[in-house]
Design a protein around this nucleic acid. Structure first.
Lengths: 127, 127
DNA sequence: TCTCTAATTTGACATACATCTAGGCAGGCG
DNA sequence: CGCCTGCCTAGATGTATGTCAAATTAGAGA
């Protein structure tokens, strides 16, 4: 276990210096190799919907049973996708009694978003 | 040809109403099915670097020969990845004499970025 | 303890994908 | 016209991935 890593994306908090890392200077081979799996994790319709379902759920967390019910897939398949999302660091989970709850890790999503956001994300008079 | 489509992502321009579509309301099956390929296009280290190289190149466009030179891969492989990016609508190209030039389509990238950007992407007094 | 439900793990299978080699098309130049 | 260079297409191949059925673990309750 202890698959908790996400020091990628050039560090930099929410209000970074430059612009979008991607359009600022070419990604190194190493950076690309670490970033690609993050996007691969959300590059699937089921995982995209899972992420959205969890993100939208009130209380910030969702029981697996609710997620499974939203798809025409078997529980093992949902479990597999949740595992992929979790290993990418996009979500986290905890068992509470009989049920397991998942919630989103917004930091990683924010970083991914910033990475692909073009130079001037808000063209509000950028001229 | 004529694989030019990108009406996805819930429409909405740069200054949309709500927040991030993903965290706002659950993605429909259709939306997810149309969005996933976009992320799949950048869910590869080589394509991520290609995109970055093109985005960073001065003049806004890059010759294929420059891209090929940056990798340890054969030209057909680079060509394949460029095709994937182009079919996703992320880049576009034009032949000019002997060389072919590629440039980025920032709109699609912007939409993808907004999609995964958590609730308040630009805390610039959005409240 | 026994049983029932919730969720995950394991193993198998079909499909999708990244990469290469070989060959084809287009444009420049002698 | 013929050749050379730049890029793409076609076909082949090994690996990765999404899905399911069957088996396993974890907790609740009688």
């Amino acid at each position: 276990m202890s698959k908790q890593e996400l020091p990628i994306i050039d560090a930099s908090g929410p209000g970074t210096a430059c612009c979008a890392p991607l359009a600022c200077k070419p990604l190194s081979e190493t950076e690309a190799a670490e970033l690609a799996p993050l996007f691969k994790a959300i590059a699937d319709p089921v995982r995209l919907r899972l992420l959205s379902l969890i993100a939208c759920h009130e209380g910030g967390e969702t029981c697996v049973c609710d997620l499974t019910a939203a798809f025409d897939l078997t529980p093992p398949t949902i479990s597999h996708h949740l595992k992929v999302l979790k290993q990418a660091g996009l979500i986290d989970s905890e068992r509470r009694g009989t049920w397991v709850y998942y919630w989103i890790n917004p930091e990683v999503l924010t970083r991914m978003s910033a990475l692909i956001s073009p130079a001037s994300p808000a063209p509000t008079g950028t001229a």
